[in-house]
Design a protein around this nucleic acid. Structure first.
Length: 232
DNA sequence: CGCATTTGACCTGCGC
DNA sequence: GCGCAGGTCAAATGCG
């Protein structure tokens, strides 16, 4: 099994250990003591989660403050840019993607774009054949259809801005990529219904075209102010 | 700059 | 036929 995250930190082991160490199996009240121990462990876990929650809140508030500062800064820049627009600059016209207005026009136009790409995809799949050469041809065809549909309604500059903002934070894995003799590359992760632990999908990259795939259940733990995933 | 990872969108099978 | 959930794709992102 591949370890996609970091080492499992069993957390609070010192406190938990001390509790367990005092468990006296020979005593007639051992059952009662065991229950108390369970309670103590649960309390410790609760305290840890409260602490974790507090840390998350702090991180969130910091991010919010920084975001607001950046947004106001951006608004100021845009105002300055509009004021200077008579000069015909243009070098300041690049708007940071993270400040796209996702709530209105950008989203609607993005849907149009995704529709057109979907059309390209459908036409692609209708003409698909087993040969890889055809696959390549289809890719070209799809690209062309994308270009054509885009040029009908929007220019390339607009196209660049209508893409939905995507925020991704990479969690580096300390685990080796090669395990059980295969080299795995992650190609997807999915939240399972009714389960807080996501499922990660890996494909073997030892050989080109290797069909071997596997899925791994991940468990999340919070350490060093960030969440990390590891295989269960 | 290349490549691995993230993640939203899309596809497909299944139960109703 | 519809909705849902699982699996896959691929653009965006970030690290070495």
């Amino acid at each position: 099994m591949i370890l996609t995250g970091l080492h499992l930190v069993t957390g609070n082991t010192s406190s938990d250990q001390s509790i367990v160490d005092h468990d006296d199996e020979t005593s007639p009240n051992s059952e009662d003591k065991r229950e108390k121990n369970k309670l103590a462990v649960a309390k410790a876990e609760l305290g840890r989660m409260i602490n974790e929650n507090q840390q998350l809140k702090e991180v969130l508030s910091q991010v919010t403050v920084k975001y607001n500062a950046l947004q106001s800064h951006f608004a100021t820049m845009m105002q300055q840019n509009q004021a200077n627009e008579g000069g015909g600059g243009g070098e300041d016209m690049i708007a940071p993607r993270s400040f796209m207005d996702l709530s209105s026009g950008a989203l609607v136009e993005g849907d149009e774009n995704s529709q057109s790409s979907e059309e390209g995809r459908r036409s692609d799949e209708q003409s698909r054949s087993p040969e890889e050469s055809h696959e390549q041809a289809n890719k070209v065809q799809r690209l062309n259809s994308l270009k054509n549909s885009a040029s009908n309604n929007i220019d390339q500059a607009t196209e660049a801005t209508i893409r939905k903002a995507r925020v991704s934070v990479r969690a580096r894995s300390e685990a080796p990529t090669i395990a059980d003799g295969c080299q795995w590359r992650k190609y997807g992760q999915k939240m399972a219904k009714g389960n807080p632990c996501p499922r990660a999908y890996y494909r073997c990259t030892m050989a080109t075209g290797c069909p071997v795939r596997k899925q791994v259940r991940l468990q999340r733990h919070f350490t060093q102010n960030k969440y990390l995933w590891h295989a269960i």
